[in-house]
Amino acid sequence: MAYWSRQRALWTHRYNKYTHIVGKYWSFVWKYLELRQLKSKLGDKPLVAIILSEQMGDIIACEPVAREVRQRHPDAHILWVVRQQYAELVKYHPDLDGFFVEKCPSERVLLLRTGIFDQVYNMHISHRKCKYCPEDPINPTADQINLTFDNYYDRGDLLYMFSQAAGLPALTAEPKMYIPEEVRQRVAALQLQESPIVIHCQSSHIMRDWPVESWNRLVKWLLDTYPYPVIEVGLQSIITEAHPNFRSLCGQLSLLETAEVIRQSHLFIGIDSGPAHMANATGATSILLLGQLFDFVDYLPYSGRYKRGEDVTILNNFGHPCAELPYAWVQDAVLQRLGQPKFV
């Protein structure tokens, strides 16, 4: 039985792999032809690519790169190369002429080899490969400054590092999010209570997370102590508290809708993840829970306000993962931000 289970897993992997590779080449051909057609329409206008296709927090943090590139190329046609699930983050940027969806890093390698772009600002560190494809993406600019996955958080915040990987000066600007009116109207239609405390409890990596029991304890205390409603955002809810002032929107919002909910918050409490970058980019006041991440002990991913310590309390029990952050620290940070309870 175990033998057949292994065989099925092996052949499933092979099917997914070769289906992906064939699809990548078809996608590459069609996208190259689309870009050739675009270039023919642009005439002498240069075609410029900004490349940072993932992750959510990285893209939000590096938004100022679009503004910097527009200043350098005021007459260019500028595209941000991005994965489909993150396209919404760059779709409405006023300094971009559009975005370009990549299927995988290997497809990007093939497109760059054609020389279709007149100028490329690639923020990716070398060797972030597709799990199915043999191509190994290289960024010579990042390699030249010795920026690797082993040291990148030792070099500064995400914007500071990745702007240099793209061959730009080390940028320190405030990140912004561009939320269109249609998104604001969709959030308004949810009829959320005013001035909520918005929480985000789970990231894409367990090393960034705070314990479920601590989150539930905190939410119960918040609801028992303060008049503010509590809203949970993210992909999957972990809060079990049943209370008329608690609402979970997990799995119900787009990226920009999540950002709009955070923008409207009285206080955001979260871990180091994409929504924390949304809070920084939308002007929210925050309490952020950090901890050791791999070998990175003292790191700060945020530029702008949060790097300067404005409107944010950053909790980090240095040398310990976020899971070991004392509950009392978080509660004390809330008391300092919200003041003494209005009622008990």
Score class of each variant (00 low, 15 high):
222 L>R: 12
237 S>T: 13
35 L>E: 13
186 R>G: 05
76 A>S: 10
70 R>L: 09
181 E>L: 08
149 F>Q: 09
117 F>L: 06
55 Q>C: 08
235 L>C: 07
311 D>F: 02
272 D>I: 05
246 F>T: 09
95 D>E: 13
324 E>V: 03
58 D>G: 04
278 M>D: 07
259 A>P: 06
307 K>I: 02
93 H>W: 02
178 Y>C: 09
219 V>Q: 09
206 I>A: 14
18 Y>D: 07
161 M>W: 00
38 L>K: 14
229 P>R: 02
22 V>N: 10
64 P>S: 07
229 P>W: 00
237 S>W: 04
2 A>N: 06
67 R>T: 14
328 A>M: 10
74 P>A: 12
315 L>N: 10
164 Q>E: 09
37 Q>I: 02
42 L>R: 01
295 D>S: 12
70 R>W: 03
64 P>D: 11
107 E>N: 08
59 I>R: 06
159 L>G: 10
261 V>P: 00
122 N>Y: 05
270 G>L: 04
41 K>G: 10
22 V>S: 12
61 A>F: 01
38 L>T: 15
159 L>E: 10
11 W>K: 07
283 G>N: 07
115 G>T: 03
45 K>A: 07
289 L>M: 15
121 Y>E: 10
158 L>H: 07
48 V>W: 00
206 I>V: 13
317 N>R: 12
7 Q>M: 10
163 S>V: 09
286 S>G: 14
274 G>A: 05
194 E>K: 09
338 L>A: 11
78 I>C: 11
260 E>L: 00
320 H>Y: 07
163 S>Q: 06
98 G>K: 08
19 T>S: 12
154 D>E: 14
221 W>C: 04
216 N>E: 13
277 H>A: 12
255 L>P: 11
191 Q>G: 06
320 H>F: 07
224 D>E: 15
254 S>T: 14
